[in-house]
């Protein structure tokens, strides 16, 4: 039988990333997941060909040094009857400190990939060296601007973008023990706007001390769903893993 036609399960996992492991890169996380899943002994599907790899589908990259409550990963399994609880249980104790799985859901065939489906993310941004009052004014100016031109480098070329349409929401949050918080919702289509770009959109430019992704959203037919909610069989918030 062609292995591509064998029954399969695709499971979406939600996990958090916090603490010192936040300094690992998106690529590092991919390797960490491959090793961790191998340790579980779960029947993860492999790619065909010269250099087989586990069939993992990662969502939007999280910038190195950012934390997150809402990272997602879709995993293909060789069997058609793999259950979410079985996966969550197997992952207990195999992930490195700072990575904790918070839930999972079986995806129906044809479910849109994370990269395509997610339309915006909520961010919690901690800033030092700025007062709440100054930040409120900055937020008002950002929200009042018709365009927010940023330049970024891509393959050695300077590219300009208008960030304004991507700023869905922006407000000053409750202060932290050492600084102030900016809460932002930024669009991800066609390209994910980054908190670091938002902070350079208007003078004065701020440098965050800690950035945390708190939610990812899929907007469809007027509804806002979190990525596990589009799954066929959610097993929400079964708290698994170690922190």
């Amino acid at each position: 039988m062609n292995p591509n036609q064998a029954p399969r399960t695709r499971i979406r996992l939600q996990y958090s990333k916090a603490g010192r492991i936040r300094f690992t890169s998106h690529r590092d996380m991919a390797r960490i997941w491959e090793r961790s899943l191998r340790r579980t002994g779960l029947p993860v599907a492999q790619t065909e060909g010269f250099s087989p790899r586990a069939k993992l589908h990662f969502g939007l990259a999280l910038a190195t040094s950012y934390e997150s409550d809402a990272e997602y990963l879709d995993v293909d399994f060789k069997r058609g009857d793999v259950a979410v609880d079985e996966v969550l249980e197997a992952l207990v104790g195999v992930l490195p400190a700072g990575i904790a799985v918070s839930g999972g859901a079986v995806l129906a065939p044809g479910t849109m990939s994370l990269q395509q489906a997610v339309t915006c993310c909520d961010w919690d941004i901690e800033l030092l060296d700025v007062t709440a009052g100054d930040l409120v004014q900055w937020v008002d100016r950002v929200l009042g601007a018709t365009t927010l031109v940023i330049t970024r480098e891509r393959k050695g070329q300077q590219i300009t973008d208008d960030l304004a349409p991507q700023v869905r929401a922006l407000e000053v949050g409750e202060p932290t023990s050492r600084g102030v918080r900016l809460l932002a919702t930024l669009g991800t289509q066609p390209r994910a706007a980054r908190p670091s770009e938002l902070l350079t959109a208007l003078e004065p430019v701020y440098r965050p001390v800690l950035v945390r992704r708190t939610r990812q959203w899929i907007e469809q037919d007027g509804a806002r769903l979190e990525p596990l909610e589009v799954g066929a069989a959610p097993a929400q918030h079964t708290l698994v893993g170690v922190q």
């Binding site: 010192r20 300094f23 700072g98």
Partner: peptide, 14 residues
């Protein structure tokens, strides 16, 4: 300091 340097994961242990 780590957000400012290349490949900060090499200083975190873990």
């Amino acid at each position: 300091v780590l957000p400012e340097v290349s490949k900060p994961a090499r200083y975190i242990g873990g």
